[in-house]
Simulated scan of single mutants.
Amino acid sequence: MNRIQFLQHLKLDYPDAASAAPRRKFRGGFAVKTKIEPAGVDKRTVEIIFSRGLPEEPIVFVDGPADSPHRYRDGNLCMWFPYDPPEARWCRPDGPTALLGHIAAHLIKEEHYRQTGEWPGVEAPHRRSLPHTEWHE
């Protein structure tokens, strides 16, 4: 799915979504912003960045509380292990609605963590040798 198709599909389910210039650090790709309201979580603004170097690995920033064991140092979400099989992570052909579903699920898990101190679900090992940004500890 290319950029234009991604944006067209995104607008079908999220009409307020807008294309945005990626943050300076991620020049050469494209970004979109929209709002989501996962069950049990306040409405959040989501910024999804596709960098030119790693178009299959979106970088996702979300406003609101950031205390989570599954965020990179710069605050972007760590939703899956980048080398997981396709069925365990988002892939471009899945489309924007599936990506926003992954983001919503991650935010629900973060909220659960903030309330209980426990992360629900599977956790990948944390190492520094992974791509696109500094790995969290």
Rank of each mutant, 00 (worst) to 15 (best):
E118R: 12
W119A: 01
I59P: 00
V41S: 09
V41M: 02
E57H: 05
R127E: 09
I59F: 00
A39S: 08
P69T: 10
V41C: 05
F30A: 07
D74F: 00
C78T: 07
A20V: 12
F61Q: 04
A18I: 12
K109L: 02
F61R: 00
Y72G: 02
H70N: 00
F61C: 02
K109S: 14
V32K: 01
P55G: 04
G29D: 11
P82M: 14
V60T: 10
G121H: 05
G75D: 11
T133K: 07
G29V: 08
V32F: 00
P131K: 06
W135N: 12
E110M: 12
W80M: 05
H136P: 00
V32M: 01
P96C: 01
R23W: 08
L130T: 02
E137I: 04
F30D: 13
A124I: 07
H102L: 11
T133D: 09
L107K: 03
A124R: 13
P120F: 00
E110Q: 15
R89S: 07
P93V: 04
E37M: 07
H9N: 13
E56S: 12
A98T: 15
P131Y: 12
Q115K: 15
A124L: 08
A98S: 14
R92N: 09
T133W: 00
G53P: 02
P69M: 09
I4C: 03
H136V: 00
D94F: 04
A18P: 11
P96E: 01
Q115M: 09
F61L: 05
P120K: 00
D94P: 02
F30S: 08
V46M: 09
S51Y: 01
G29C: 07
H132E: 06
E123T: 15
F6I: 05
T34P: 00
Y113G: 04
D84I: 06
K25R: 15
P69Y: 10
G117N: 11
V122C: 04
L107V: 02
F26G: 14
R89D: 06
K33L: 08
A66N: 09
F61H: 05
A20G: 03
R24E: 15
K11C: 06
S51A: 13
S19D: 12
D94C: 03
R27K: 09
L12T: 14
R27A: 14
T116I: 10
C91K: 02
D74W: 00
G28A: 04
V122T: 11
K25F: 15
P125C: 08
L99H: 06
P85D: 11
K25A: 15
S129E: 10
L130E: 05
R3M: 06
